[in-house]
Write a protein that binds this DNA or RNA. Structure first.
Lengths: 178, 178
DNA sequence: CCGCTCATGTAACTGGTTACATGATTTA
DNA sequence: TAAATCATGTAACCAGTTACATGAGCGG
């Protein structure tokens, strides 16, 4: 009955559930401050998305004013709430546990196309990027911890675990290159 | 000068470099047998993609025949080869080392929307999916090992490392839920 | 001879990107 | 008072999805 929403749509719904009634702008900001590159979404995607969810009956709108500035606040409907819990409940959509996309890994498949010194340069650069990202993720977890947001903290621990695994892996790759 | 190709385009180029001249069909099959959900591409994306790369001068075509059946074989040009090495060389495109998208992690952010028993059901299902995927990844590595394809084997080790990290993480999540 | 695989494509659609455009309010 | 932020949107574009369509060759 409820056909497949995109991951962006689910995340928007989830955000509204978590933070309460929000403007499209607030959702957009939330995405853009996320450490994951997947959620760097902009006005061009988020405003049509909110309209879509509204048309589908997952959100209600209320237009407010603050001085001369209007703003539209979106709230979850019962149907929207249900969409969220369905998304979180088994059976999880195929692919939820499947291999994630990793642009570094994809590159390693073709690393033989480089000369040995260039391969090492690749590994070095990759490692630096991973380390920089890891410290950002550690900061993110701290912020959630101090806010007392347990589930976001657990999620952030997920990214940390993955970043550490990728770091150890890239070290192994580098070791094989020398 | 060489503006951004998509990850799919780079992977197609990489495949041709690795396997030599290939038909669009062969590339398509290669993608569809990949364990990563990102490469489940189909005719509708791959044929236009190859044409695009050809128009851009990264590939050349040669039309052959086998009986009455025609097939177009694509080969890498020098420019295509250069696009591949550029893609693999530092500085790696921003985001190559950034946090990867993980549909399980995204869900955990909103897990508080479920009742405690449903949260545990989520974790259980997630774990099963991860385990199933992990064994597929182990098989993949074995296949590469026996073929003697070192870099693909290293790449496969990357997915294994990540899958294991996710498994340990989901266990920690499950532990926090009880 | 039936069904699968090889092989090539097209057409309609859709979600997301980039860039543009506007204007009010807040802050340095 | 200038710049940043809040807030809303549109328009052109593009890559990838789904579904359709065709036909040769091969193995059981």
């Amino acid at each position: 009955m409820m056909k497949n929403l995109t991951h962006l749509e689910f995340t928007a719904i989830g955000n509204i559930w978590k933070k309460g009634p929000s403007t499209a702008y607030a959702i957009m900001k939330e995405f853009s401050t996320s450490p994951s590159a997947h959620y760097r979404s902009s006005a061009g995607s988020i405003y049509p998305l909110m309209r879509r969810l509204h048309r589908r009956g997952l959100l209600t709108t209320k237009t407010g004013r603050k001085g001369k500035r209007r703003h539209k606040t979106f709230s979850l409907t019962a149907k929207g709430r249900r969409a969220l819990t369905d998304w979180l409940s088994p059976p999880l959509a195929e692919g939820a546990g499947s291999t994630t996309y990793d642009p570094l890994r994809t590159r390693v498949y073709f690393l033989a196309a480089l000369t040995p010194p260039d391969r090492r340069a690749f590994a070095k650069d990759a490692k630096q990027q991973l380390q920089a990202q890891l410290s950002r993720n550690l900061g993110e977890r701290e912020r959630y911890r101090t806010k007392g947001d347990l589930f976001s903290e657990l999620a952030a621990e997920g990214s940390i675990a993955i970043m550490r695994a990728r770091l150890r892996w890239i070290d192994r790759v580098a070791a094989k290159l020398s």
